[in-house]
Design a protein around this nucleic acid. Structure first.
Lengths: 250, 250
DNA sequence: AAGTCACACCGTATAGGGTACGGAGTCAGG
DNA sequence: CCTGACTCCGTACCCTATACGGTGTGACTT
């Protein structure tokens, strides 16, 4: 197994899109690729990606472990499907021309998907984005750039920049969020913990700026609020930068 | 094990910073926490994170497997140390006041670290960044914002935005790069593969914009070049946006 | 000088993982 | 009705992380 996914083949695409030519011989399959993935997502949502084993998943579905391998060639492929499906209810309404509005909604949607499915950040998806939901989002974003004056490569780069930023931001946000959840501490307690941790690490001689800044940061609004605010700040800056570039193209 | 690391305790910090009060009794340890992590990094660089098992690592170091557990409480802690050490030669020269130059260099450096150590993207680091290299980078960036007119929270948000973007961009870039490497194909062959993959997936009725754009993209410069260009584009937009915000603060 | 005890080291054992392999049952096409 | 494709799955294999307990070492105490 790999938690790392790399390489695709025609079979993988068929599975990602859940296309199945009905088999001509033998009994009909009792499950579908998507059904299995949905159950897997449930487990990962509830108990974390570590709790998701093929045996556990099979038990949940009421089938033998090896049955799963008639649907998926290996666990990595299952993870890839799960990853794409995590963004199922995410695609925003198409908004031709309003690229900024669309990208902002998309970013929000993707971020909240990561928050609902933190395990998605532990899956390393290699290769180009070929999943249905990835493609749908791309299509919508490209259309939102219709008639804006960017060339194709620029559109693509702008969209990629936003999704890259969102993934990175989600990584941080989810990391802190999980930490918070796992610690079982209140906001205040957790901040005290952080302050103490940094205090043992930060020599004021060596890291004066960091010490000064963090002292001010702790004690202000709650961790998660500050975090959300940070996401908005970064996203707005990025969109501002893209806007500037769009304007320079007219 | 978890590939996911969450929660820290004082011991973890001691290990991250390789602080060891020399034991007063008994034989001296033959290894150090950093030495072990360096060997682990070597293995992961050469053969991927999957090849890194405690047994393999111990063999490489010429010690018994369980010996490693006298240095690390568990494998996750080792991964956390490896993660921080991946950014060792990364911190750019401090440049007080030149925030843009500093952030740009930092982004470059982090990106190239991810490229040298692709496995770092498979490690999920929870909690606040407490590793020495993380802190060093933060300190440098904060100083680069000295006298620029942003308040502390804004400085922090700007820095976080950039590192978030870089992580996301690296994820994509490394994903494509690994895929390329594993396939063993030439640039042209790989592009043909991609084109074919998308062709089987993209119904022109449903995804007209995507079809049009991708058709134009394939056949232009080589994959990796386009990818690098994309990174620069996104980074520049983000920095532009921050610059705009800085200017609006004066 | 002898004793003590914290600590480094590590062999063994356990519980659990992914998945190769081969067999049994099932149904459509010939 | 038979043949062969295809689903289902029990068993087995090899590989993980790591708990536990034992052995030896050497700096401190007395």
């Amino acid at each position: 197994m790999a938690v790392e996914k790399i390489g695709w083949d025609p079979l993988r695409i068929e599975i990602l899109w859940d296309r199945k030519e009905a088999s001509r011989r033998g009994p009909k399959p009792a499950l579908t690729v998507h059904q299995i993935a949905r159950t897997a997502i449930q487990i990962a949502d509830d108990e974390g990606l570590d709790a998701l084993s093929m045996q556990r998943l099979a038990r949940e579905l009421g089938v033998g472990t090896m049955t799963l391998y008639t649907y998926y060639p290996d666990k990595d492929t299952l993870l890839e499907v799960m990853f794409d499906m995590a963004f199922e209810e995410t695609t925003p309404v198409p908004a031709i021309g309003d690229w900024r509005g669309y990208l902002e909604q998309m970013a929000q949607g993707v971020m909240s998907a990561y928050q609902r499915h933190p395990w998605a950040l532990q899956i390393f998806v290699g290769g180009p984005p070929l999943g249905p939901n990835q493609v749908r989002a791309l299509e919508g974003a490209l259309r939102a750039f219709d008639g804006v004056g960017l060339d194709d490569a620029e559109k693509l780069d702008a969209i990629i920049a936003v999704t890259s930023f969102v993934r990175g931001a989600a990584h941080l946000s989810v990391g802190l969020g999980e930490h918070h959840k796992n610690s079982g501490l209140t906001d205040e307690q957790l901040e005290a913990e952080y302050a103490r941790a940094y205090a043992t690490v930060l020599d004021p001689e060596q890291f004066p700026a960091t010490v000064a800044v963090l002292a001010g940061v702790f004690g202000t609004p709650t961790e998660t609020e500050a975090n959300d605010a940070g996401f908005h700040f970064g996203l707005s800056r990025l969109l501002d930068g893209i806007e500037r570039h769009v304007e320079s193209r007219c």
